[in-house]
Simulated assay, not measured.
Amino acid sequence: MDLLTPDFGLIVWQILIFLVVLFVLSKFAWKPIINGLNERENSIEEALLSAEKAKNEMAQLKADNEKLLAEARKERDNILKDATAAANKLKEDAREQANKEGARIIADAKSAIELQKNAALAEVKDQVAKLSVQVAEKILREKLSSDEAQKEYVSKLVNDLNVN
């Protein structure tokens, strides 16, 4: 029965040791842990804000791209209409000459439209690529600012590769 009921002195020493450990933990351990959690929360919030900003920029770029494509199509249609009208006018003068001239105008118009379209698409792709690289660079710099964060990110990528 003595094993089940501790002495009064043992209880006092256990309470005293518990209070000392509680004091040491509250003084040296809990504050850094709470500060670390707060910093992590802030970094996550900043990353979410930058991701939202990048998403909005990408939506704006997509809208601009659609606008450029619509303008290119409209211009292509106008050029094709002009080429058809010119071909009809020349057809009245001389059928053979009109066929040759119409084919040349249509070919020139299509190549000009294709060149303009390719140039516009290349410019938009270049801008999207630059912005994407800048956004990714900012996010990675923010996210991987410390060695521990880099190791954690590499581990996460390795785990993702193992899952896939």
Rank of each mutant, 00 (worst) to 15 (best):
S26E: 10
E71M: 08
W13V: 13
A54S: 14
D82P: 01
F23Y: 10
T84P: 00
E75W: 02
L69R: 11
F28G: 01
E41T: 11
S26Y: 09
V20T: 09
N42R: 12
A109R: 10
L25F: 14
A70I: 05
V21M: 08
I105W: 05
A51M: 12
N35G: 06
E114A: 15
A107G: 05
K100W: 02
P32Q: 02
T84C: 00
A83T: 03
K31W: 02
K74M: 03
A109W: 03
K31Y: 04
A112S: 10
Q60G: 08
D64L: 08
V24W: 07
A87G: 15
L16A: 11
E71S: 11
I17A: 15
E96C: 00
D82N: 15
A86N: 11
A98C: 04
K27P: 00
L16M: 05
K31M: 04
I106A: 12
Q97T: 05
V21N: 01
A112C: 01
I79H: 02
V12T: 10
K62I: 08
W30A: 02
I11W: 11
I44E: 09
A72C: 09
A83L: 01
N38G: 06
R76W: 04
E96S: 06
K31L: 06
E101R: 11
Q14L: 15
G102D: 05
L48W: 06
A70N: 11
K74C: 00
N78P: 00
L49T: 06
L69N: 08
N38F: 11
E114V: 02
K74Y: 01
V24D: 02
E75C: 01
F18M: 09
K67Y: 05
G102M: 01
F28E: 02
F18H: 03
K74F: 04
S26C: 07
K31S: 06
K74E: 12
A54Y: 09
A54F: 09
G9F: 12
R40K: 13
I15K: 05
S111N: 10
L115C: 06
V21Q: 01
L48P: 00
L16S: 08
R95H: 01
W13F: 12
A70H: 07
E66C: 03
Q116Y: 03
A87S: 14
D82H: 12
K31P: 04
L68I: 09
A109E: 07
R73S: 07
K100C: 00
